[in-house]
Every structure is written in C-alpha cells, then in structure tokens.
C-alpha cells in the first residue's frame, strides 16, 4: 500500500509535466517525480523495526571489526541509500540547468507559456 501511494505521487508529477503549459510547472512536475522515485527506492530497502545502517558501540562483537548478528539481521539496506544520496545531489544540478533555461527563455520571449514560444531561430 505505501508503494501504491508512492506511485500515485509519481503519476501526479507525470501529469503535471505532460499537461501543464507553464515551464516552471513542468520543472515542478519533474521534481515531484524525482521525490517519488527516491522514496520508492528507500522503501524497498526498509524493514519493519529496522535500525539505521550505522554501527554503534554495542554492535561490535570482536576486536577486528566484526559486527554482531543482531546488527546484520536488523539493519536496513544501505545500498539504495547510497545510490539515492547520489541521485539527490544530481537532481539539484539538473534543477539548476532547467531553471536557467527557463530564465533565459523568459528574457527572450517575455513569457513562461510554452505554446507561445514558436520562433525557433538561432
């Protein structure tokens, strides 16, 4: 059920990116889709009653850095977290690129309306 709500959030972003005429609204729809995908990946690695993948003092079993079996069996998945961390930072860079394109288009045409941006010349 949380997966379905997450997918509903993605569909809202898709609707916004496809149907709206305003360029900033399209950027907002793409952002909503990014949040939904990140949330879905983190949810896949979650387990009920799990703990964060950070080794505390009580989780170390041996002197060589061995962790206890309790930590192995109750930690959430660290791999999606690492990859989503990368994706979030990249989304900031792409947001800056998209918004700069919007600002330049506004300066050239005087509107954010994509149906009025028709003069495609260099």
């Amino acid at each position: 059920m949380p997966y379905a709500l997450c997918f509903l959030l993605f569909v809202i972003g898709l609707y916004c990116a496809v149907v709206k005429k305003n360029m900033v609204k399209i950027v907002i729809g793409i952002m909503v889709m990014e949040y939904a995908v990140n949330l879905f990946l983190i949810m896949l690695g979650y387990r009920l009653g799990g703990i964060a993948p950070i080794v505390g003092k009580e989780d170390v079993a041996g002197a060589g850095g061995q962790v206890t079996d309790l930590f192995v069996s109750s930690s959430v998945d660290p791999l999606p977290q690492a990859l989503v961390l990368t994706a979030i930072v990249i989304s900031l860079g792409s947001l800056a690129l998209m918004i700069s394109i919007c600002i330049r288009t506004y300066e050239k045409y005087g509107t954010f309306d994509i149906t009025e941006i028709r003069r495609l010349k260099g």
């Binding site: 993948p53 950070i54 080794v55 505390g56 170390v60 060589g64 850095g65 061995q66 962790v67 930590f71 192995v72 930690s75 660290p78 791999l79 977290q81 690492a82 961390l85």
Partner: peptide
C-alpha cells in the same frame, strides 16, 4: 552490512559504500 566496518573502518555503512 556484515563486512563494511571490517574492510573499510567506517562506522557509517552508507559512507563506506
């Protein structure tokens, strides 16, 4: 999860990944 601390020395597994 099982060998992250042993192999990399980082207590935060996400940082070690």
């Amino acid at each position: 999860i099982a060998e992250g601390l042993q192999k990399t020395g980082a207590a935060n597994i996400v940082a070690s990944v």
